[in-house]
Amino acid sequence: MIYITGDTHGDINRFFDGGALDTKLTKNDTLIVCGDFGFVWFDESNPVGFNQDNDKLDRLSYKPYTILFVDGNHENHDRLSKFPEVEKYGSTVHKIRDNIYHLERGRIYTIEGKTFFTFGGAYSIDKYMRQEGISWWSGEIPNDEEYKRGIKAIKNADYKVDYIITHTCPSEIIKMYLHHIPDPHDGELTGFFDYLMYEVDFKCWFFGHWHTDDYFKVPMRGKTKKFRALLFDVVNIEEYEEVKYDEY
Score class of each variant (00 low, 15 high):
Cys169Trp: 02
Ser135Gly: 15
Ile2Ser: 01
Lys152Phe: 07
His9Asn: 13
Thr26Gln: 09
Val86Thr: 13
Gln52Thr: 10
Phe206Gln: 14
Pro219Val: 00
Leu31Ser: 05
Arg149Glu: 11
Gly121Tyr: 02
Gly72Phe: 10
Ile111Gly: 00
Asp144Ala: 09
Glu85Arg: 13
Lys148Phe: 14
Thr5Glu: 02
Ala122Thr: 10
Glu75Val: 08
Tyr215Ile: 06
Thr5His: 00
Gly208Arg: 15
Glu188Ala: 15
Pro170Ser: 14
Ser91His: 06
Gly150Lys: 02
Gly35His: 09
Glu85His: 04
Asp78Met: 05
Ile165Gln: 07
Leu57Met: 09
Asp126Gln: 15
Glu87Tyr: 05
Leu196Thr: 12
Arg228Ile: 14
Pro64Gly: 04
Glu238Asp: 13
Cys34Trp: 03
Ile2Gly: 00
Asp22Val: 07
Phe227Cys: 01
Glu75Gln: 08
Trp205Phe: 01
Ile174His: 10
Ser138Asn: 06
Pro184Asn: 07
Leu68Trp: 07
Arg59Pro: 00
Lys226Asp: 00
Ile108Trp: 03
Gly49Pro: 14
Ile154Tyr: 09
Thr168Lys: 06
Ile134Val: 15
Asp7Pro: 01
Gln131Pro: 01
Gly49Glu: 10
Glu146Phe: 06
His102Asp: 03
Ile96Met: 09
His185Met: 07
Glu75Ala: 07
His74Pro: 01
Asn156Thr: 08
Pro64Gln: 06
Ile100Asp: 01
His167Val: 14
Asp214Asn: 15
Asp194Trp: 02
Cys169His: 04
Asn143Glu: 13
Ile12Thr: 11
Lys88Val: 08
Val161Lys: 12
Glu247Pro: 00
His179Leu: 12
Asn28Pro: 04
Arg97Trp: 08
Val86Glu: 05
Cys169Ile: 14
Thr92Ser: 06
Met129Asn: 08
Trp136Thr: 04
Ile96His: 10
Leu230Asn: 06
Thr118Trp: 11
Glu242Gly: 01
Phe202Ala: 02
Ile173Ser: 09
Ile125Asn: 08
Thr110Ile: 05
His209Phe: 10
Gly208Lys: 09
Thr190Cys: 02
Ile151Asn: 09
Asp144Tyr: 01
Asp11Ile: 14
Glu44Thr: 12
Gly133Gln: 15
Glu140Lys: 05
Arg228Met: 04
Asp43Ala: 13
Ile96Trp: 12
Phe15Gly: 04
Tyr128Phe: 15
Lys95Asn: 03
Asn76Ser: 07
Ser135Cys: 11
Leu25Arg: 14
Glu172Phe: 11
Leu230Cys: 04
Thr23Met: 12
Glu112Pro: 08
His9Asp: 02
Thr212Leu: 02
Thr118Pro: 02
Asn13Cys: 01
Glu241Leu: 06
Thr8Arg: 08
Gly139Trp: 12
Cys34His: 03
Leu68Cys: 11
Glu239Asn: 12
Lys24Cys: 05
